[in-house]
């Protein structure tokens, strides 16, 4: 069953992701954003299959629940008109397509050849992975954690500065 679920979630993830960046039917940013949300949720499914429950929850909570809402918020606030009045330059599409396909091919090949997963099995998580994560976060990774808090402060200050009205 896990295999089937994997293929379902994987297919959904990829499909949604593709539709997010290259939707042939709509170039509406809102559509892209919604597909991105769906991608995130399907990915959370993959996380669950990997038994990373905590991250699955965080993925939905932060990405789908907060980050993407922000995106949607901004798109709506700006009421960005669809791109369709502009035409893509063929050249850039071709160039982008070729380079990305090239990269994909290389990645595909290296993954295939390096046989990364050989001999590795998914080990069932014992107990709560959240507790283990939390412990590591506050011992071994305490410093990065604190740095990230500074980073969040910076982001906060930055956002306020960038978006507040001028008092003049």
């Amino acid at each position: 069953m896990e295999n089937v679920l994997f293929y379902i979630f994987a297919a959904l993830t990829l499909l949604f992701a593709f539709l997010c960046v290259a939707n042939p039917f709509s170039r509406n940013p809102v559509t892209s954003a919604m597909f991105l949300v769906l991608t995130m949720i399907s990915m959370a499914g993959l996380f669950v299959l990997l038994q990373a429950f905590f991250l699955a929850a965080v993925q939905i909570l932060v990405y789908a629940g907060a980050v993407m809402v922000l995106f949607l918020f901004v798109i709506m606030l700006l009421d960005i008109k669809e791109e369709e009045r502009r035409r893509f330059s063929r050249f850039s599409i071709a160039l982008g397509g070729v380079s990305v396909i090239g990269l994909g091919f290389i990645l595909f090949k290296t993954i295939r050849e390096s046989k990364a997963g050989e001999g590795l099995k998914l080990v069932a998580v014992k107990g709560s992975d959240t507790a283990a994560l939390g412990k590591a976060l506050f011992t071994q990774y305490l410093l990065p954690f604190e740095i990230v808090s500074v980073l969040l402060l910076v982001a906060m200050v930055g956002v306020i500065l960038l978006s507040k009205k001028d008092l003049k």
Partner: peptide, 8 residues
């Protein structure tokens, strides 16, 4: 941390 600060 460096990069985000520099965005602002």
């Amino acid at each position: 941390l460096i990069t985000v600060t520099f965005y602002v």
